[in-house]
Simulated scan of single mutants.
Amino acid sequence: MKKQYLTFVLVLLTIMLQAQDAYQYSLSFLGVNPATDNYQMALLATPNFDAPNGNTADLGAAFYVPEGLGISIGNFQAADSGIPAGEWIGYSSGTDAGKELFQILRVPGVTNYFINAENGVPIQLAVFDIIATTNPTTGTITLANNDDPFVLATFSENFLNVSFTGTTTNYFGAHDATANSINFETLSVDEILVTDSVKLSVYPNPASNVIHISATFPVEKVALYDVTGKLVLRSNDTKQIQVNTLNAGMYLLKIYANQQTLTRKVLIE
Rank of each mutant, 00 (worst) to 15 (best):
K99S: 12
K99E: 13
E100D: 01
L101C: 10
F102E: 02
Q103N: 09
Q103G: 03
I104M: 02
I104Y: 03
I104V: 06
L105N: 11
L105W: 07
L105V: 13
L105S: 11
R106Y: 04
R106Q: 11
V107N: 14
V107T: 15
P108W: 00
G109K: 12
G109Q: 09
G109N: 10
G109F: 10
V110H: 00
T111R: 12
N112D: 14
N112L: 10
N112E: 12
N112C: 00
Y113W: 09
Y113A: 03
F114A: 08
F114G: 01
F114C: 03
I115V: 11
I115S: 02
N116H: 03
A117M: 10
A117D: 10
E118C: 00
E118G: 06
N119H: 07
N119F: 03
N119E: 12
G120F: 11
G120N: 09
G120L: 07
G120M: 05
V121G: 01
V121Q: 12
P122M: 04
P122A: 03
P122T: 06
P122H: 05
P122R: 02
I123W: 08
I123D: 08
I123R: 11
I123P: 07
Q124N: 15
Q124Y: 06
Q124V: 11
L125Q: 08
L125V: 13
A126I: 04
A126H: 05
V127C: 04
F128Q: 12
F128V: 13
I130P: 00
I131Y: 01
A132F: 03
A132C: 04
T133G: 15
T133C: 00
T133D: 12
N135W: 04
N135P: 05
P136M: 02
T137P: 01
T137H: 05
T137G: 08
T138Y: 04
T138W: 00
G139P: 04
G139E: 09
T140P: 01
I141E: 02
I141N: 04
I141T: 04
T142L: 13
T142W: 06
T142C: 06
L143F: 05
L143V: 02
A144F: 02
A144T: 06
A144P: 02
N145K: 14
N146F: 03
N146P: 02
N146Y: 03
D147F: 14
P149V: 07
P149C: 01
F150I: 13
F150G: 13
V151Q: 04
L152F: 01
L152T: 11
A153V: 06
A153S: 15
T154L: 08
F155M: 10
F155S: 15
F155V: 09
S156R: 10
E157W: 05
L160K: 07
L160G: 00
L160E: 13
L160D: 11
L160N: 14
L160Y: 13
N161Y: 11
N161G: 05
N161S: 03
V162C: 00
V162E: 04
V162M: 02
V162P: 01
S163E: 07
S163K: 07
S163L: 05
S163N: 08
S163Q: 06
T165P: 00
T165L: 09
T165A: 12
T165W: 04
G166V: 12
T167K: 09
T167A: 14
T167V: 15
T167N: 14
T167G: 06
T168M: 09
T168C: 02
T169F: 13
N170T: 09
Y171L: 15
G173F: 06
G173I: 05
G173V: 02
